[in-house]
């Protein structure tokens, strides 16, 4: 039975596929990605050296704490039950940090000059925070870790304040538009 053109293509669709690209495509792509990554970091540091420096410190902290945490026994206990005073600090700082984040998030991404990894790092519950939280659960009596947690909150708050200051300097009046309206205009 003769086939028409379209049905022939549909029935033999797989036979029209060629093997994938040569490995050199990924090699070139990887080099390109590495280059653009370095370029972005350098350019971000040039424009936002303070933010970049603080984020770098937070990332280093995260790496060190992660290493420590790997060698500790994991305990599934709620932090609030173990250390009530830390819970109070958590409520206080979380509210303030969330307020600041909300203000910062009102600005479009291109105004912030931060890539997605850096934006992720700005969030309260990032890897550093989770590592500290686990450390506290495992070592509730350790004053140094308690201090580190409080310092983490303060550092985060200072960082967000600094970013907000810069953004407000840049825009004489605070944004009254929603993020979507702003993006639509530009």
């Amino acid at each position: 039975m003769p086939e028409n053109f379209e049905s022939f293509i549909q029935q033999h669709r797989d036979a029209f596929e060629e093997p994938g690209p040569s490995p050199k495509v990924w090699d070139a792509l990887e080099r390109e990605l590495e280059g653009s990554r370095k370029g972005r970091i350098v350019s971000m540091m040039g424009r936002n050296w303070f933010k970049a420096a603080v984020i770098a410190v937070l990332l280093v902290n995260a790496a060190v704490l992660f290493y420590i945490a790997k060698h500790k026994q994991h305990q599934q206990q709620d932090l609030a039950v173990v250390i009530p005073e830390i819970q109070e600090a958590k409520v206080y700082y979380t509210n303030r940090i969330n307020e600041k984040l909300e203000l910062i998030n009102a600005y479009p991404a291109n105004e912030l000059g931060l890539d997605s990894a850096a934006r992720q790092e700005l969030q309260l519950r990032n890897d550093t925070y989770k590592t500290l939280e686990n450390e506290l659960k495992n070592n509730p009596g350790n004053q140094r870790i308690r201090g580190a947690m409080i310092r983490y909150y303060q550092l985060k708050l200072e960082l967000l304040d600094k970013i907000l200051e810069e953004l407000q300097d840049k825009h004489a009046t605070p944004p009254t538009h929603t993020k979507k309206q702003y993006e639509a205009e530009i």
Binding site: E17, P19, G20, L33, R37, S116
Partner: peptide
């Protein structure tokens, strides 16, 4: 920004 994940994505769709 995980390059290894991007490679997984590339491998899944490249062909």
């Amino acid at each position: 920004g995980d390059v290894r994940a991007f490679r997984e994505l590339y491998n899944a769709y490249a062909a």
